[in-house]
Design a protein around this nucleic acid. Structure first.
Lengths: 116, 116
DNA sequence: GACTGCCATCGTAAGACCACGATTCATGGC
DNA sequence: GCCATGAATCGTGGTCTTACGATGGCAGTC
């Protein structure tokens, strides 16, 4: 069940990309959703991580640790928060893990913010 | 120095509205700013408050307390968070206080989110 | 002046967040 | 099999939220 890919680019960005979101842009559930996403973005380190991942459209891994002035465990926690919010995705690439933006969720966040 | 307005609509929305933002959309300061704004939005009650204030383009006051299932003091705290983030403004209108959206900051938030 | 209503603030208790070092787990190379 | 490496998780403090009731201040009203 191994990925037959070279370890160079580690899965740039997943298949689905343009399917529209069917969920409502407002209402109680949308409020909860927006709050959860905003909370995940509500820390400078996580904003930096998101920026890093957006900039390099392909994904990186523990280079994030080198870019941030934080301990490895702390960065890992921030990554977990972002992953649980659905804003990023982590894929195992051999010994390391590569993270990339989940464009669908990011678009969702923009739509929700835009509805304000 | 009293406002010569009837107490019906309590200052719809302030003068300046269309002046463009000169601050950069990314960089360390922008990251901090986005994180602070997102953190302020990162609670369902505050999202609801923002929605309320956007919906009624004029501002309301303690009606917010009636709309939310929270104690008056809790709502007041949430209002304080939003005010300190610069997302809303509170003006004294006789015995009550009227809150309204600060459109400039809201636009700033949208721009920052949009830069992701 | 006394009273009422509206709102902010204080004080407090429970829980969440943030950061770190230490540990554990998985993978690939030897 | 054994070791190195990259990453997640654990455990621990310190700080920040969140919620509430209680208290305090201020603008109008009587």
């Amino acid at each position: 069940m191994a990925t037959p890919l070279k370890k160079s680019a580690c899965v740039p960005t997943p298949p689905l990309d343009e399917t529209p979101d069917l969920r409502p842009i407002e209402g109680p559930e949308a409020d909860e959703e927006l709050a959860a996403l905003a909370k995940a973005v509500g820390h400078p380190a996580r904003v930096q991580i998101l920026r890093l991942l957006v900039r390099r459209e392909s994904c990186i891994c523990g280079d994030i640790v080198d870019e941030l002035p934080l301990a490895q465990s702390t960065v890992s926690q921030h990554l977990k928060v972002l992953k649980e919010a659905g804003l990023i995705r982590g894929e195992i690439d051999g010994p390391r893990v590569c993270y990339c933006i989940e464009p669908r969720t990011l678009r969702r966040l923009k739509a929700l913010i835009g509805s304000l």
